[in-house]
Every structure is written in C-alpha cells, then in structure tokens.
Design a binder for these strands. Structure first.
Length: 579
RNA sequence: GCGCCCGUAGCUCAACUGGAUAGAGCAACGGCCUUCUAAGCCGUAGGUUACAGGUUCGAGUCCUGUCGGGCGCGCCA
C-alpha cells in the first residue's frame, strides 16, 4: 500500500515543481505513517510541513496544492487536510480486505518474505567464555541475538548466526587448573582451591569424574604449595598453570583442559538448544592459531607499518585510526593478546564474504569497539561492515537484593535454572521485550510469581482461543475448509476494521524491526494484535447460524491466528493450540 | 578525571527516529461468566517525560549545562 501512495505523491510533487509552485531543486522525502487515531484516517504524511520552509509557503496551503495535484488511487476513499498541514488518507472499505487474501495465500510466509537487498549478514552473539554454565545475563544476549537474526532473516536477508568460542587464553588455563585441583582433592590431597580459581560445583564434578577414571596425574600437595610461596594471588595461579603444564606434560594437561572445555561447551550448546537457539557455526579461537591466521594478520599489519615494537612488546597503532591509545598485540613474553585474536577473527568474518557482520556485545565491551574498527581499517577493510550492538546488563534481584553474576565465584543464577522456573518461551519473550540498550531490572521472585501474568501468555492465549474456536466450529458441524472464499464484506464493524488494519501491518513491522535492529517491536505489535482480538472476542458471537457472516468472522480469526503464529515464530516462541 | 549508555505513571517498560490529546502491563478501585477458553473484557484513578536553558510551525525524541544511575578507560578475556 505504502509504495503506491509514495509514487502517487511523488508524481504530484513533481508536477508542482514543474509548475513552479515548489522549488525544483528541493528534494523531498515522502514518509507515510500509520495514524494513531482513526479520526486521522489510515495513513498520514507530513510532507507539506517539511516543504513549508524551503517553499516559503504556509504548510496548509502546500498541503492543499498537493491534494489538488494528486492523481486517482482506487484504494483511497477520501483525503483530508488536517491540523497544521497533515494530509490524512482514508482507505476504501474494500481495500481493507486485501490483507485477508494475502494471508490465506501466503500463510506461514506472510510477513516473512520481504524483498530486501538480500545482504549476507553474520550475527554473532553470546560467545561467553566456556568456563562455566551460562547465567541469566547471557540469556538476554541469547534471546536478543537470536530474535535479531530471525527478524533480519524475515526481512529478507541471508543470515547466519555464530558463537565465538574463546578456547584459548589464560581463563581457560585457570579453569583447567581448577579442575586439576579438584581432581587432586578428590584423590585425598590436602590442598585448597585458590579463591581466584573457578569455584562452581560443576568444576568439582569434573575433577571427581576424572579422578575415578584415572588417578595417575596425582601430584603431592606439598609440591604445589612450594611453588606458591611469596606470590600474590594472580601470580600464584600462573605458577600453578606452569607447574601443571610441566608435570602433566602436554598430553596430561590436555586431559584436564579438554575435559573442561568439551563438557562445558556441550552444556552450553545443549542449554541454548533447549532455549531455542541453534547456531550455524561455532567458531574456535584456537583454530585461528592453528591455521596461522593470527600470524598472517599481524604480518599484514607489519607490512603496512601499522604495528611497532616498544618495551619488548608489539603495539598496534590504533591512534592512527581513531582509537584513543595504541594497544599491545604481542606481549613481551611472545604471547599474542586477546586483541590479536580478535583482529584475525574479524578479518576472517569479512573475508568469508559477509556484507555485514553484527556483534552483539555486553555493554561493558563498548570501549573495545574503536580498536576493532581501527584494526579493520588498517587491514584495508571497511569498518562499516562491522556493526556492534550493545546489550545492557540485566541486573538481577532476588528478595530485593542484587544477585552477583561472576562466573569465577560461582555465585550466579544459571540460564538453565531460569528456564526451569519460568520456561523457555516466557524467558525469551520477557528478554526480547526490552530494547537492548535499555537497562533492565530482572526480579527473579517477580518472574516466578508472575509467570501467569507474563505478557507472553496473553498473546499465546489469543492464539489458543482461536484454535479452540475453529475446533468447536467443526464439532458443531460448520465447515471451515473454505474460509479463504468467504464474503469478507461481512466484516465492517469497528473491531473488525481495527484487526484488519493491524494484520496488514505485520510486514511493515518486521521491516522496521529489522532496520532498527529492534526485535522488541514485534513483541509490542503482537500484544496489540492480541488486545484487539480479545476485545473482539468478547463482543462477538462467532458460531452463529448465518453462514456468510460466520464464515467471514472465522476467516478473520484464522487470519489473526496466522499473524500471531508468524510473529511468535520470529521471536523463537511457540504458538500453542491449547493452554 | 575522560568516554559510552540510560533517566517517561507507585513498579516494569512502549512511544513508528521531530508530529496531532505521551501509551501498555503489573499493583489499586468498580463492573462483566447458565454461552465459542474469565490466562479474558469494560471502566475509574494515576504525568511539569530528572532539572534548567536553547533550536522551530511543532521536542519525551536534537543541542548545551546540571543532577542521578550503570559500564568502561590492562602486556585480563
């Protein structure tokens, strides 16, 4: 509908330019909006208001000139000039039924087949370190990232999703050593787990399991303690790591490291799968080392003169590309930094041919954006191909008190626990309902208590109600097989028109949600549809003797059901047939 | 100290990127089930959009400042 209106108005304005009424060199963006109130018609445009200044004319006068210049449009019933210069358009009643034809025609595809640029887009999200189970903070990133990927796909892009596995680096070594200590403990060694090691019960479980399988990696506690003397906490744990690597040997160490990595990664993969999140690719950081991609990237930066040596370390000249300071890429001890991996990783993403790579990051990483973009630029890649979307932290409250979320301390609520309590659907809907950059208070008690008041159930209930309605109709012997052929002109009351308008908006809502990277717009839209339906339901008697009337109403209901189903699908939430 | 994000009803959040009278859900109050799902509907009450200026036909939205909250400023990841 909107494209037709746009060309109609473009023609009219072109005509006014030719006639010298409007300045010919003035470019105008004609924007149509859905009206908030029905007295303002179905669509409105403020184009006359924006033209007022350059044309040096009264906006109402311009609006009238445009209206007079408009050609015929079969769908438009009337056009009104309103307020300071808005042009309001009222649809003919017949035009409202078009959406029903489309819905019956397109079914599950309605709203999901926008013809956009078909950009290849990679959405990377969660990417939590595999050092422990996902907690509720990761849940927000998961729900947002996955819904975003689905929305972009619904809007017509080619989308892939990816989890970046940080399987290299010190945190993983600390984890491996934590497992080793637990292993030694369960073999009877008298040694305490350092407070800065991973404390979670899952670490203990892994240590015990390995102890039962093979006790040959036992080392006397006294030997461990002797390496710790006089060192501060962080240095002590590094000494432990060195000791473990030395005494266990490469293969022995790998037993603990791989046990930790694989079981945690399996757990995360499982967890996300049950949450409705399945990735196209799990990208290993170690693979960048193994394939020499990190060295290659650093080499390229050397060639281009964007790195230099200082204090024995290798520095990237980020300041030349807008970063606030230069950053170390290779440490004095020869180890590449995490940033070095990230340079290679982001280069690799773009090399894989994506037009756009989206990173969903926790807001605490915002300071990291300039250096990654700077590195892309230094490598001769377009930094615009990287879009970082920040998700604010969800601050957890239980019994009115903040709940910590540190993985090392083991004090956190897991995503799995949350799902158990309120269900995946409710958790996803709740998370995705918030704009990502909005701070979010997550009250666990409330989430449990209110699980029945969760807006999700309101939407799902509308869907289930319609399913039941159709079933009941069949039980009473009414045919429901040919609703697409119903006489839609039976639908004309206020409730019905409201619903028809809402249904026709789905494709626009999907497009806009995708363009804004804001899946929450779908949540609010669905709630509006459900509200309109519940209201309609309460004032209507559907299963009546008058066949044309009955069929038309059932057709509308079934169209509503389709829209709810398609919309919930974009959010990764189920549309149950009964509740 | 510098940088990024945020501040909207008692609480949790929307508001079509500058549009017309700022809207929902919880919580509160009053109604609606002999009927196709009451996990629902209808109504009442609740606001100086943190504060002060500015930009213009028009500001919750843009610019400046102040106050308040979150996060960041490692040869950690």
């Amino acid at each position: 509908m909107i494209p037709q209106l746009e060309s109609l108005f473009t023609d009219a304005i072109a005509q006014l330019k030719t006639n010298g009424v409007l300045p010919p060199d003035q470019s105008v963006a004609i924007k149509f909006e859905r009206t908030r109130q029905k007295e303002h018609g179905d669509f409105a445009t403020n184009v006359a208001l924006t033209l007022a200044k350059p044309a040096k004319k009264n906006p109402r006068e311009i609006a009238q000139l445009i209206i007079d210049a408009l050609g015929d449009a079969p769908e438009i019933d009337k056009i009104e000039l309103a307020g300071p210069g808005f042009i309001n358009l009222f649809l003919k009643q017949d035009a409202r039924y078009e959406v029903l034809h489309r819905l019956f025609d397109e079914g599950d595809q309605f709203g999901l087949t926008a013809q956009n640029s078909r950009d290849k887009i990679l959405v990377e999200f969660v990417s939590a370190n595999p050092t422990g189970p996902l907690h509720v903070g990761h849940g927000r990133g998961a729900a947002y990232g996955d819904a975003l990927a689905r929305v972009l796909s619904a809007a017509g892009h080619q989308v892939e999703s990816e989890y970046y596995v940080n399987d290299a680096g010190r945190q993983m070594d600390i984890l491996a050593v934590s497992v080793w200590i637990r292993y030694l403990q369960s073999l009877g060694e008298d040694i305490a787990l350092p407070t800065n090691a991973y404390q979670g019960a899952y670490v203990e479980a892994m240590g015990q399991e390995l102890a039962q399988q093979d006790s040959s990696h036992r080392v006397a506690a006294a030997q461990l303690l002797s390496t710790q003397q006089g060192l501060d906490e962080e240095a002590a744990i590094d000494a432990l790591i060195a000791l473990a690597k030395q005494t266990l040997g490469e293969q022995g160490y790998a037993i603990f490291f791989d046990k930790a990595l694989n079981s945690i990664l399996d757990d995360i993969r499982d967890d996300l799968h049950e949450f409705g999140v399945d990735y196209h690719t799990w990208f290993s950081e170690r693979s960048l080392f193994d394939q020499g991609k990190i060295q290659a990237a650093i080499e390229q930066l050397k060639q281009s003169g964007d790195v230099y040596e200082k204090g024995g370390a290798l520095w990237f000249k980020g300041t030349a590309y807008g970063d606030e300071k230069d950053r170390v890429v290779v440490r004095e001890n020869g180890q590449p930094t995490y940033f070095a991996s990230d340079i290679a990783y982001h280069k690799d993403k773009i090399d894989r041919g994506f037009d756009l790579t989206i990173n969903v990051w926790g807001s605490d990483h915002h300071g990291y954006i300039p250096r990654v973009k700077a590195s892309l630029q230094a490598l001769g890649l377009d930094p615009e191909k990287l879009k970082v979307l920040l998700v604010q932290f969800a601050v957890l409250y239980r019994s009115g008190e903040k709940v910590g979320m540190s993985t090392r301390s083991g004090q956190f609520v897991t995503l799995r626990d949350l799902r158990k309590e309120i269900g995946s659907d409710a958790a996803r809907f709740f998370y995705a309902m918030r704009k990502s950059e909005q701070h979010m208070d997550f009250d666990l008690d409330l989430a449990k208590e209110q699980s029945n008041d969760n807006p999700l159930y309101y939407v799902q209930y509308a869907h289930a109600r319609i399913c039941r309605l159709v079933t009941t109709a069949q039980e009473r012997g009414f045919s429901t097989g040919n609703l697409a052929q119903a006489d839609f002109s039976q639908l004309s009351n206020e409730h019905e028109n409201t619903l028809l308008t809402l249904l026709s908006r789905l494709p626009e809502v999907v497009n806009k949600a995708a363009a804004d990277y804001e899946p929450h717009q779908i949540n609010y839209y669905l709630r509006d549809v459900a509200t309109a339906f519940h209201s309609y339901y309460n004032t209507s008697k559907f299963l009546q003797a008058d066949a044309p009337q009955r069929d038309a109403m059932l057709a509308l209901c079934s169209a509503v059901r389709q829209v709810l189903k398609n919309g919930l699908g974009i959010l990764g939430v189920s549309a149950p047939e009964s509740m």
